[in-house]
């Protein structure tokens, strides 16, 4: 089946089975290796991408439902000023250890900040509730996002 969609603001077209997971199409066909498979069942958030601006787990999306949509992965997001603010926030707060979960957390942070540019620590925790990290213990990621909202004030 031919699927057309917009990936990181560029039109793409893939010839795949309709029930392929968006996760696999992004990684295998479109080389978006920031999108990681952790659990494969919607629970860890390491396969997060933005679909029409909304955070989704790409392991739960059949590619047929992506036709005509806008998908943003970290590969696209990293070209933005907002990403720079989150990167700095994460750097100064020690939010990244092994890094496996990081692309998912960055996109969860973007989804949160674009809806609520001034979240409290509690709201940040709610915003990243679907992302698991085996290294940091989360406090440093929460701190990173709170730092990012200050650094990037006015960007969201």
């Amino acid at each position: 089946m031919k699927i057309d969609f917009v990936l990181n603001e560029e039109k793409v077209s893939v010839e795949v089975e309709h029930s392929n997971r968006l996760l696999d199409v992004l990684r295998d066909d479109l080389h978006q290796i920031s999108v990681k498979e952790g659990c494969g069942e919607g629970e860890c958030g390491s396969c997060s991408v933005l679909m029409n601006g909304k955070l989704v787990n790409s392991c739960l999306i059949a590619i047929a439902s992506v036709d005509g949509c806008h998908i943003l992965t970290l590969e696209g997001y990293r070209k933005t000023k907002r990403f720079e603010a989150i990167r700095k926030g994460f750097e100064v707060s020690g939010s990244v250890q092994c890094g496996f979960c990081t692309p998912g957390f960055v996109l969860a942070a973007e989804a949160l900040l674009s809806e609520n540019p001034d979240p409290s620590a509690l709201e940040v925790m709610k915003g990243i509730e679907g992302n698991l990290c085996r290294c940091t213990g989360y406090q440093m990621i929460v701190a990173g996002i709170l730092e990012a909202k200050e650094i990037g004030k006015g960007l969201w």
Binding site: R21, E41, G42
Partner: peptide, 15 residues
Amino acid sequence: GSDVMIKYRSWSGTP
């Protein structure tokens, strides 16, 4: 798809 993608999921990397 959040129920059916789990119910019918197969090996990693496959539809």
